[in-house]
Simulated assay, not measured.
Amino acid sequence: MPRKKSAGPRSFGEPLTDDPDDAPELLDEFFRTGEIRVDGKIVRRGRPPLGTQPKSSVTLRLDADVLDAYRALGRGWQSQINADLRRVRKLKKA
Rank of each mutant, 00 (worst) to 15 (best):
R3H: 09
G46W: 04
R3C: 06
V43E: 04
N82L: 02
F31R: 07
K55V: 08
E35P: 01
R89S: 09
Q78R: 15
I42A: 11
Q53F: 01
G46Y: 05
S57V: 15
V38T: 05
V38A: 08
T52N: 00
R3V: 12
F30L: 08
P15T: 10
E25F: 05
G8L: 03
T17M: 12
L62T: 02
R86G: 03
R45A: 13
G51D: 07
E35N: 12
W77G: 02
V58T: 04
R61M: 02
R45K: 07
D65H: 10
P2R: 15
P2G: 14
D63A: 15
T52D: 04
T33M: 10
D28C: 01
G51Q: 01
L62P: 04
W77P: 02
L50V: 06
D18Y: 05
M1Y: 03
R47C: 09
P9C: 01
A83H: 09
P24F: 06
L67T: 03
W77Y: 13
T59W: 04
D84V: 01
G13H: 04
P9V: 11
D18R: 11
A83F: 03
K4L: 12
D84W: 03
P54M: 05
G74I: 11
R37E: 08
T17L: 09
L27Q: 09
T17S: 15
L16V: 14
E14I: 06
E35D: 15
Q80C: 02
D18E: 13
D84T: 02
R61F: 00
S79V: 03
D65K: 09
S11R: 14
A23V: 04
T17Q: 11
L26K: 13
L62H: 02
K55M: 10
I42S: 09
L85N: 11
T17D: 15
P15H: 07
P49N: 12
G13F: 06
R87L: 12
M1E: 06
D19Y: 01
K90I: 01
A7Q: 02
R86E: 10
P2E: 15
L91Y: 00
R45Y: 07
D22W: 05
K55L: 13
S57Q: 15
T59S: 10
R37H: 03
D68E: 09
A23S: 07
P20L: 08
T59D: 05
F31G: 00
D65F: 01
P24D: 07
K55F: 05
K5G: 06
R71L: 10
G8C: 04
K5T: 13
R75K: 09
E35I: 07
P20A: 04
A83Q: 08
P20V: 07
G51C: 00
I42Y: 07
E25W: 02
L50R: 15
E35A: 12
L91C: 00
L50T: 13
R47L: 12
G76T: 06
